[in-house]
Design a protein around this nucleic acid. Structure first.
Length: 518
DNA sequence: GGACCGGTTGTCAGA
DNA sequence: CTCTGACAACCGGTC
């Protein structure tokens, strides 16, 4: 179990000055790329100042990550690191970028720097859990005190699970009832400049600088829609919180998935990277809501934040949460394995313009509206292509700026009707759904420019356009834009039957597992 | 055990 | 333009 450890050593234990000068305190940044509301960072600063130790806030860039994540997310990360460095410098410290494999270079540095105290944020992604175990073992053996803080969510998922007798709350309402009476603590502030004594001799070394975008072969010149960083995140938060009427009347299902400019806040990339504290968002929302009548969860803005908490709780309390097999929450469904369909979907070449527009916006900008995610996730899985939600989740992991381990797996299970949501007969139509908020298909015309000149009448179903219309629009279906890869009307009904079968088997299995009461 | 309720966000036809 | 029911009938939580 990962919980924060309280630090109680009396300060008098270490009183030799020569000893304390040699020691270092490290705060290890991962998914908490901010100075505000960062308790682990403040713990590190206090410890360094009290003991006159060197303070080294670090971030580790793994060589693999440059290959693993695509341009948009990598760019967001690098921008966030630049901003973090700048914000740390305002406090008279800096960010030390370390390059290498964490399991190798971190123990080496902890020794080299004579680190006595390491602080970090608890993260629940199995990747981090595994990595942390290695590092914590090393620290244990080398008398390095480790302080871990839960600060990526408003509530501590472990606390919520405990309140539910160790069980994962399976409905949103149940989750809300569990957190209803939990008091949310105020945010942490770090304002005071850090003492000169905490600067090590290598403070000005360029070798620890944040790499430039050009250095890692990313375009620096373009104007980016969602620049990374704490400063951007805070600015965005304050801009939206100032629109009090908008905040209080927000209802998610009434926002548009296909407006040209986002109809929601796009705070998610900042929260997922920890550029913005979820708790700060919570308190700001509470403050605005206290002033007037407002919408309520699940549809309100606060409700959106609670969805994140809901999935974090489920992800924390479930083995193999990001997989179907071995995942107790997930209905076992015999998904197919059509690689061509998966490829067409991920590249925005399904022949369904609305689906393709969404996938292309995702590739280009790294963000799509939540309901747009519904559309394409349903289409890939239970709606049309019958491809496993795990495949879709991998593509989202690659492309989304706001990629988050527990939210990604949780939402994919929701949309594929594998967990949390079960009304599999509610299928999104790739033709009808987008029309509700964008009758003329302006969104499609922006992201699928081949179809720019198509008349609105055919923009959602270009295969229906007569040859003469296709020629006039300069786009022949099957040549300049793909023919649709499946017939939605036909295939979604077949898939519903398959879902029904899978549910039936699932039910029988569950009945077998249930202990008999005689 | 069983009945009932409610679930952020479906679609289509018809009133 | 908004509302309704049919479609076919899911699940978890509660009493």
């Amino acid at each position: 179990m990962r919980c924060s450890i309280k630090y109680n050593w009396p300060l008098l234990v270490l009183n030799s000055q020569s000893m304390s000068v040699l020691g270092s305190v490290v705060h290890w940044f991962r998914l908490d790329l901010r100075v505000h509301d960062n308790l682990a960072l403040r713990n590190a600063i206090n410890e360094a100042e009290n003991r006159k130790n060197f303070l080294r806030p670090i971030y580790i860039i793994e060589p693999d990550i440059l290959k693993q994540i695509r341009g948009n997310r990598l760019r967001f990360l690098i921008q966030s690191l630049h901003d973090l460095d700048a914000n740390l410098r305002k406090l008279n410290t800096r960010l030390y970028i370390v390059r290498g494999k964490t399991s190798e270079c971190l123990p080496e540095l902890l020794k080299k720097w004579n680190v006595k105290y390491l602080t970090l944020q608890v993260d629940i992604d199995p990747f981090y859990i595994k990595q942390d175990e290695v590092i914590e073992n090393f620290c244990d053996k080398n008398d390095i005190f480790v302080v871990k803080r839960v600060q990526h969510t408003v509530y501590n998922p472990q606390t919520v699970l405990k309140k539910n007798n160790g069980n994962v709350p399976l409905t949103y309402q149940k989750f809300l009832s569990l957190v209803n009476d939990i008091q949310v603590k105020e945010c942490i502030e770090i304002k005071k400049e850090i003492s000169e004594d905490c600067k090590s001799s290598d403070f000005n070394s360029k070798s620890y600088d944040v790499p430039s975008l050009t250095e890692i072969e990313l375009d620096e010149s373009s104007d980016f829609k969602y620049p990374g960083g704490e400063s951007e995140g805070l600015k965005r938060l304050l801009t939206y919180m100032a629109k009090k009427q908008w905040v209080c009347s927000f209802e998610k299902p009434n926002t548009s998935p296909n407006s040209i400019e986002p109809s929601t806040t796009v705070l998610s990339p900042y929260i997922s990277h920890g550029c913005l504290s979820a708790r700060l968002f919570y308190h700001k929302l509470k403050q605005v809501e206290s002033e007037m009548r407002h919408s309520e969860p699940p549809v309100s803005l606060l409700g959106q934040l609670m969805w994140r908490e809901f999935y974090y709780t489920a992800g924390t309390g479930t083995e193999n949460f990001d997989r179907m097999v071995g995942n107790s929450l997930c209905t076992q469904i015999p998904w197919g394995n059509n690689k061509d369909h998966l490829k067409a979907w991920s590249e925005g070449k399904t022949g369904y313009p609305f689906v393709d527009a969404i996938m292309r916006q995702l590739t280009q900008e790294g963000w799509i509206h939540h309901l747009a995610r519904h559309m394409v996730a349903c289409f890939l899985t239970r709606g049309d292509l019958w491809v496993s939600w795990e495949e879709g989740a991998k593509v989202f992991e690659d492309l989304l700026l706001d990629y988050d381990w527990s939210l990604n797996a949780g939402n994919w299970m929701w949309l594929s009707a594998s967990a949390f949501f079960y009304k599999y007969f509610r299928v999104y139509s790739p033709v009808a759904f987008g029309k509700k908020t964008d009758k003329d298909g302006l969104y499609i015309k922006k992201y699928v420019p081949e179809l720019k000149k198509f008349p609105s009448e055919y923009i959602y179903e270009p295969w229906k356009a007569p040859q003469s219309v296709q020629r006039a629009a300069g786009c022949i279906i099957g040549e300049n834009y793909p023919k649709r890869i499946v017939d939605h009307d036909k295939v979604h009904k077949e898939n519903m039957k398959k879902m029904s079968e899978a549910y039936k088997i699932n039910k029988e299995k569950k009945a077998l597992k249930r202990p008999r009461s005689d």
